[in-house]
Computed example of a mutant assay.
Amino acid sequence: MNMLINSAETVVADALRGMAAAHPELDVDVERRLVVRRGAREGGRVGLVSGGGSGHEPLHAGFVGYGMLSAACPGEVFTSPVPDQMTRAAAAVNGGQGVLFVVKNYTGDVLNFDMAAELAGEDGIRVERVLVNDDVAVTDSLYTAGRRGTGATLFVEKIAGAAAEEGAPLERVAELARRVNDSSRSFGVALSACSTPAKGSPTFDLPDGELELGVGIHGEPGRERRAMMASREIADFAVCAVLDDLEQVAPADGPVLALVNGMGATPLLELYGFHAEVVRVLAARGVPVARTLVGNYVTSLDMAGCSVTLCRADDEMLRLWDAPVETPALRWGR
């Protein structure tokens, strides 16, 4: 596979060097693998820290900035960051109001963020943890115990980040983040496999003319493999899988935040066409859409495919979603 890299060993460091050059408003520590919002300790705000394996860009480092994350900890490709990164991040953003760890439900991330929370606590930093586990495709997988954390991570980080920006206390920010996660569900589809720099070839076998329904963001298997389907058929399957699960826990009469997310190699021409089909299915199910985001936000390297994330949003969530945000990958209202 041809890749625009120097080497597999330096790909994350090289990306961080490039990010530092492109975004001087961020403090990027290439050696320690930290991306920190400049002035993160100022203003008496709760600090928000997230992170995970690289390869899902712009998640998480692309969401560091005003109204969202205070810091991100990038690991190696598809590999959890280590507790030292997270502990340093907590110290770098703690302004005395405590720190919220936003953790996707993957075994390495959970274990390492838990350990970092203990270490930060020993240093006198109050830490709350919120687990994101929105993927309805499967329960338990190669990387997880329970459901995987995917697109709802963006909703959690944006809405909790806006609450922290307003000065909400740690317990309130954490409660809101959990409520967003509990109100969100996702489903992903792969049209091709992804290729990691270290392997240099597809990480799983997906023959031409087939797709993986319910794929994970690391290429984990989903519910089933089928012959290629039309966009409208994929939307029927994915949106109904999300709504059928979501309606068990969230009121069925409220509006949703909708994320139509590209996995990395699917162009906007296709994503917008798919979004039209998503809207069609939601309308048929009587679900109003309050806000929509279409694009590549939680990716899987060069995988072709998409995911749908829906969040049953109350008035407070919508207000905080609309609040100003200024990060490399998400910005409005300033």
Rank of each mutant, 00 (worst) to 15 (best):
R33F: 15
S192F: 03
V239A: 06
N181A: 02
A163W: 12
G222Q: 03
Q85K: 13
E57M: 11
L259W: 04
I159L: 14
G55W: 09
E118F: 12
D123A: 15
E122D: 15
L100G: 08
E233T: 03
R185N: 01
V93M: 09
D208S: 15
S7R: 09
V103G: 00
D27G: 00
L111C: 12
D182R: 14
D314M: 04
V156L: 02
R33S: 14
A40D: 08
G209W: 00
V325P: 06
V11F: 03
A91R: 14
N133V: 01
L320C: 07
C240I: 11
T309Y: 12
E220D: 02
N2T: 13
A198P: 00
P288C: 13
G209R: 03
S183G: 06
R280P: 00
G67R: 03
D244T: 06
A89H: 05
A90E: 10
A250G: 05
V298W: 00
V132T: 08
K104D: 13
D314Q: 08
S80K: 08
V82T: 15
A250M: 00
L142I: 14
A91C: 10
L100S: 02
A230N: 00
D182L: 12
P202H: 12
L16N: 09
G149L: 02
R129C: 07
G96I: 06
R41A: 04
P207S: 03
C240E: 14
V138L: 13
A250W: 05
V49Q: 08
G65L: 07
N94R: 04
G121R: 12
T196S: 14
A190S: 05
L170S: 04
V249D: 02
T144G: 01
G295L: 04
L268T: 09
V127I: 15
H56A: 07
G52F: 04
